[in-house]
Amino acid sequence: MTHLYKVGQMLNLRSAPRHSNRPTGPCEVVSCLPHNSGPVQYRVKSLGESNERVVEEADLSPSTATKADDMLSESVFSIAVNKR
């Protein structure tokens, strides 16, 4: 079984099972996790938070979101740091 999505791809994270604080919405694939059996898993980072999560492929769907909004805030910070 191979991974359907690639590192760097923007996807939609679907709602989590009950009793979870996992956000829904756009996220970026950080890595494709190795597996021998069971569901295909990915490490993803939601645009709205700083931590990464491990999710199953079934919880992801293609997205039209782009990284531009998130990258804008990072680039402003990196410019300020680089000018020191």
Rank of each mutant, 00 (worst) to 15 (best):
H3A: 04
H3V: 07
H3I: 03
K6P: 02
K6T: 06
V7E: 11
V7G: 02
V7K: 13
G8A: 02
G8F: 00
Q9H: 01
M10L: 15
M10I: 15
L11K: 02
N12F: 00
N12E: 09
N12I: 02
R14P: 05
R14Y: 06
S15T: 10
S15M: 06
S15R: 15
A16S: 05
A16T: 11
P17G: 15
R18S: 13
H19Y: 14
N21D: 11
N21E: 10
P23I: 02
P23G: 01
T24G: 04
G25K: 01
P26S: 05
P26K: 08
P26E: 00
C27N: 10
C27S: 11
V29Q: 00
S31D: 12
C32G: 10
P34G: 03
P34N: 05
P34K: 07
P34T: 06
N36V: 10
S37K: 10
S37R: 02
P39K: 06
Q41N: 06
Y42M: 06
Y42R: 02
R43W: 10
V44G: 00
K45E: 07
K45V: 00
K45L: 01
S46Y: 04
L47A: 01
L47F: 12
L47M: 12
G48P: 04
E49F: 09
E49Q: 06
E49A: 04
S50L: 08
N51L: 04
E52D: 14
E52S: 09
E52Q: 13
E52G: 06
R53S: 10
V54F: 05
V54N: 09
E57K: 03
A58C: 05
L60D: 06
L60K: 02
S61Q: 05
P62Y: 08
P62R: 04
P62Q: 03
S63P: 06
T64R: 09
A65T: 01
T66A: 09
K67F: 00
K67H: 04
A68V: 14
A68M: 12
M71Y: 13
L72W: 09
L72R: 07
S73F: 14
E74Q: 15
S75A: 12
V76N: 03
F77Y: 14
S78G: 04
I79G: 08
I79C: 13
A80H: 10
A80E: 11
A80D: 03
V81I: 11
K83T: 14
